[in-house]
């Protein structure tokens, strides 16, 4: 991959994620009949947090400081494995989709450790919930990827996600549709969006992800927020590439369709958050199991 393509990919990965969050917030505001915060508000929030000082509890250890750093670095690494506008990602090798899944796992592991490190019962509860749902979301992700692998016969994300019209988009649209729905559910669950978790509440009984990062402040919290936005962007790129029928051969068409699809995804998330309520904790499991079932079904269809 030429250097200028890598630079563009990195630039996109580093600067665009907060915009996606801004679009979601804007759509929700418009749905509620409000003007809403400006589109660039997440950037301003991040700058404000990066300028602040940090308060550290005397009981917490190095894990507490390490976890935000790990969270953002793993997400940026994962972002190097997923293709954006160009046909291939900067890093592409056989089996990189396993690395992708476990980079997400590593970030989660460190977030859980930091939450437990604070010693607060509240954060421990958030960590327990996160671990429970993740154990259901991960099989769905793997089954979805397995279906894509079987469809394309390759083990690299860049090839697996190349589903353009000339690469059998039409013939295997049924499989791709199933994988898309399943990965979309995983996308919502992993990013703690409604109907799984409300990113806005600070009500202890309902929170999952927010409960784990309550003790972080200043630049650490900024890193966590940026890491979360990057996760939203990277997983979103994965989701839209499963059904995007555009050929990514020419870079202009590839980038235009990719960015358009990402904006569409953000609007869809905003609409879902405005029209749906958060489901009860008990039902979260059944939604994720349904996602597993759909992805497993996709695998069966490819095996036919």
């Amino acid at each position: 991959m030429p250097v200028h393509q890598v630079v563009l990919h990195l630039l996109c990965l580093l600067t665009l994620p907060p915009l996606l969050v801004g679009i979601i917030v804007k759509v929700k505001a418009l749905f509620a009949g409000r003007v809403g915060a400006p589109l660039l508000q997440p950037y301003l929030d991040l700058f404000r947090l990066y300028r602040k000082g940090t308060v550290l509890s005397r009981t917490s250890t190095w894990l507490f400081v390490a976890s935000p750093v790990v969270a953002i670095v793993t997400m940026l690494l994962a972002g190097l494995l997923v293709p954006f506008g160009y046909p291939s990602a900067p890093l592409a090798f056989t089996g990189d989709l396993v690395l992708f899944a476990y980079l997400l796992g590593l970030a989660r592991f460190f977030t859980l450790l930091a939450a437990l490190d604070t010693g607060s019962a509240f954060e421990g509860m958030g960590a327990a919930r996160e671990a429970t749902w993740a154990s259901l979301a991960e099989p769905a992700l793997f089954l979805g990827l397995l279906a894509l692998v079987r469809r394309s016969g390759s083990m690299s994300l860049s090839t697996v996600l190349d589903v353009s019209l000339d690469r059998g988009w039409g013939e295997s649209s049924a499989v791709l549709l199933l994988v898309f729905v399943s990965l979309f559910v995983v996308f919502l669950a992993e990013n703690c969006r409604i109907p799984f978790d409300d990113p806005n509440t600070h009500l202890e009984l309902t929170m999952i992800h927010e409960a784990m990062v309550l003790d972080h402040s200043g630049p650490a919290l900024g890193l966590i927020l940026q890491g979360a936005a990057t996760k939203l962007f990277v997983l979103g790129a994965l989701v839209v590439h499963t059904i995007l029928p555009m050929s990514r051969g020419s870079s202009v068409v590839g980038w235009a369709s990719f960015l358009g699809a990402m904006i569409g995804l953000a609007v869809a998330v905003g609409v879902i958050e405005s029209t749906m309520a958060r489901v009860r904790m008990k039902r979260v499991a059944s939604l994720l199991i349904a996602a597993c079932v759909l992805a497993g079904f996709g695998v069966i269809l490819t095996a036919r």
Binding site: A174, L178, V181, A290, V293, F297
Partner: peptide
């Protein structure tokens, strides 16, 4: 057939 298959997958999704 691809179109019909996609529609049938929708039927399956609605079953679930």
């Amino acid at each position: 057939t691809a179109l019909v298959d996609s529609l049938l997958i929708l039927v399956l999704l609605l079953n679930f």
